[in-house]
Computed example of a mutant assay.
Amino acid sequence: MNEQHDNKAAGAMDAEAANRDTDIAEIARLLPAPARWDLSREQHLQHKEQLMQRIDHDQVASRPRPARRLLRPALLVPVTALALGGILTAGIVVATGDDAPATTATRQHGTSGTSSAAVLLDQISLAASKGDELTVRGDQFVYSRDKSMGADLSSGKAVAEPLRETESWVAQEPGPLLKMGVTKTDGEKAENINAQLGDTEGTPAGLSRPTYNWLASLPTDPDKLLTYLYAKTPKFEGEERDQAVFEQIGSLVGALMPPKTAAALYQAAAKIPGVSEAPDAHDAIGRKGVGISRDDKTFGTRTEWVFDKKDLNFLGSRSYLVRDTRYGKAGTLMSSSAEIAHAVVDKAGQAPATSQQS
């Protein structure tokens, strides 16, 4: 009797579970598909940072934890946790051997050796190669100061945020590190730069944490360097591989780096199809210069690197819409930055005695 009762109870539970699964499936079918967000790599990482901050706050409300910060400024685009969930499901697709750089034949359709962009990048590369080679110890920090702004998309339209000044002290240990340095915005209290999302053992030196000595280890042959970047640069579903590599180079060239590496990066950029000259470029604080740009045709944005007209030093970058989109009309500014100073210091938070001014 007890066995029959147990069997009936188990059957009822199975039926209830089956009904519940059917209800969930029906609700999922009726709900609209998660929204797709046209985001660059840095925007996507910023969203992940915001999501982790929300999780940290919800789980440890009584014990505040330092906010996770990116090493470089990104667009500040507040969205709901549900939207973030949809974004994160897309994930990062890391290139494999199938994502090799453009061949010599396909490169001929991009920036040719005689184009104005290639000529300018060759001049920029030559100027960069004449910089000072530094000796940076693993126990030191690279200091940087910049000003940047991003677009707030929470209203469905791009709304420019105020310009903010950021100081960062990035650890130069090869790693992996759970605490990669500290950063301070507009003179506020310094916050930790924590390991990248998913790096439970810490983030090693690399594309996610480009230390001076790691940058010095990169190939200085432009073709070999480009092959490495095409193989290692993360990309997102729908993003152009060439654009992902162009933006990866852009995220590196504003940092303090060995002259030979900087020169090779600019030479490598000249080989990416679609790169062009932007003669009227300017940075976040209005410094006018010459520019190198590339259009992301998938998302309708243009990314520009800005260089001083006299010495060809890197000044900053900006991105804006080149066609009307749901975020705004063509010309709408999405982000802008200006490099102010760089230096090597012995301690996080230490003011540099001397620095390399941009």
Rank of each mutant, 00 (worst) to 15 (best):
G110V: 07
R107C: 01
Q59N: 15
D6G: 02
H47M: 07
Q46D: 11
K48P: 00
T89M: 04
L120F: 14
L82G: 04
Q108G: 12
A28M: 06
G113V: 13
A128I: 04
G131K: 04
H109I: 04
A12C: 03
A117R: 07
L76M: 11
L84N: 12
N19F: 11
Q123K: 15
A90G: 11
H5P: 00
V93Y: 09
L76P: 03
A100R: 12
W37V: 10
A12T: 04
D38M: 02
H44T: 13
K130P: 01
L126G: 03
N19L: 13
E42K: 08
R29M: 05
Q46C: 05
P101R: 02
A100C: 06
S116D: 13
A12Y: 04
E16Y: 07
L30D: 10
L84E: 15
D21W: 05
P66W: 14
R63M: 10
W37T: 08
A105K: 09
G97N: 06
K48S: 08
T111P: 02
A118W: 01
M13F: 06
G113M: 05
L31C: 10
E42H: 10
L39N: 01
S115H: 00
P32I: 00
K48Q: 13
A17L: 11
N19D: 12
S112I: 10
S129P: 07
A33L: 13
E42C: 01
P32V: 00
V119M: 04
P73K: 07
R41C: 00
T106I: 07
Q46M: 14
S62W: 15
E26C: 06
G91A: 13
A67I: 02
H5M: 10
K8G: 00
E26R: 13
A15W: 05
T89E: 08
G85Y: 11
D38S: 06
V94N: 11
S125N: 05
R72C: 02
T22S: 13
L76N: 14
H109N: 08
T22D: 12
T111N: 08
I92F: 15
S112M: 06
Q43L: 02
A35W: 01
S112L: 07
A28K: 08
H57A: 15
A95D: 03
L30V: 00
A90Y: 05
V60W: 15
A18Q: 09
R72P: 00
A33I: 02
A67L: 15
V77S: 15
A25S: 14
A61F: 08
L126E: 13
D23H: 11
A9P: 01
D14C: 04
L75F: 00
T80C: 11
R54Y: 07
T96G: 15
V93P: 00
A10H: 10
Q53G: 04
I24H: 09
Q108S: 11
D21F: 06
A10N: 14
N7F: 14
S115W: 01
L76I: 10
R41F: 00
R41V: 04
N19S: 11
L51S: 09
L51T: 12
D38P: 00
E16F: 10
E26T: 08
S62E: 15
M52K: 02
V119H: 03
S116F: 05
P101W: 00
I55H: 02
L30S: 11
L121F: 10
H5Y: 09
T111C: 12
N19W: 09
M13Q: 09
